[in-house]
């Protein structure tokens, strides 16, 4: 029996009269990989912003691990174990890959206000940081400034940084967007490996990734949930085919 880790009810976000997210009731079960898909502008990123408190909802509530987190601040939500990545790659550009991961490790393990200590005390996190970099295939780029990494590697670094916090739940916003085939395969393999003991909610446009990875899919259009279910169910849904793929209708089943 699986239980619910994240649950929203009536989640709504209006931007000056424009409703970007409209009465969304989302339920994510513990230990699953759950996809949030939908056409551009459907409100997926806005949903993530609401769930991680980067935006205050206009209406509705959010519960994480049974706690109402609707009124919390983003940093507190992250500390509860709900950590997000961003659609646009978010690395600390002038820090090396290793330092990027250490910044996350440092947050989890304390001492971040120590302004009188030498930076070298952070070396105690190096071993763990290297492990995490190896895990995403960035072992040899440890000393490269993150800003100089290729796009796919930046995304991989982001995932390593997020994993450093050992979050119970990850929200990944298009983790494979703009990646080469090889990079996509690496990320998919990585997500498979790190799902142990975690719940993942991901926005993903690449349907073959969704098909291969996700246990459950929620389709969002114009801020509303259109359909929900496993890949087979959702990909056969006429409305989904019409709304999500438009002129390409029918191709869902063949991706």
């Amino acid at each position: 029996m699986s239980d619910t880790i994240l649950e929203t009810s009536g989640l709504t976000k209006e931007f000056r009269g424009f409703v970007a997210v409209n009465g969304v009731d989302l339920r994510v079960e513990t230990g699953t990989i759950h996809a949030l898909i939908g056409p551009n502008g459907a409100g997926k990123t806005t949903c993530f912003n609401l769930l991680t408190k980067f935006l205050p909802p206009t209406r509705g509530t959010i519960r994480f691990k049974g706690r109402d987190i609707t009124g919390m601040r983003p940093a507190e939500v992250a500390r509860l174990g709900l950590v997000r990545s961003f659609q646009i790659s978010a690395v600390f550009a002038h820090l090396t890959a290793l330092q990027n991961v250490r910044v996350a490790l440092q947050r989890g393990r304390g001492g971040s206000f120590d302004f009188w200590r030498a930076e070298s005390v952070l070396d105690r996190y190096n071993a763990r940081a290297r492990e995490l970099l190896d895990q995403v295939g960035l072992g040899e780029f440890a000393t490269v400034p993150a800003g100089q990494l290729a796009y796919g590697r930046k995304r991989a670094l982001e995932i390593a940084t997020t994993l450093a916090l050992e979050p119970e739940m990850l929200l990944l916003d298009e983790p494979t967007a703009g990646m080469t085939h090889a990079d996509v395969d690496r990320i998919v393999a990585l997500i498979r490996r790190v799902r142990q003991g975690r719940t993942i909610l991901m926005v993903e446009h690449n349907l073959s990734v969704v098909e291969g990875l996700c246990d459950r899919i929620t389709v969002l259009t114009r801020g509303r949930i259109l359909a929900e279910g496993d890949y087979a169910t959702v990909s056969r849904n006429e409305e989904v085919i019409a709304a999500y793929l438009g002129s390409e209708a029918g191709s869902v089943a063949h991706v």
């Binding site: 991680t52 980067f54 983003p74 940093a75 992250a78 500390r79 950590v83 997000r84 990545s85 961003f86 978010a90 690395v91 600390f92 550009a93 002038h94 820090l95 330092q99 250490r102 910044v103 996350a104 440092q106 947050r107 989890g108 001492g111 971040s112 206000f113 120590d114 302004f115 009188w116 200590r117 030498a118 930076e119 005390v121 952070l122 940084t161 997020t162 916090l165």
Partner: peptide, 23 residues
């Protein structure tokens, strides 16, 4: 050049990301 300074630099480079890491 302290652990604190490292966090400051992270915040300066990408504040939303620092927040999302729980800072």
């Amino acid at each position: 050049h302290s652990p604190f300074g490292q966090v400051l630099q992270a915040i300066r480079e990408n504040e939303p990301r620092a927040i999302s890491l729980g800072y």
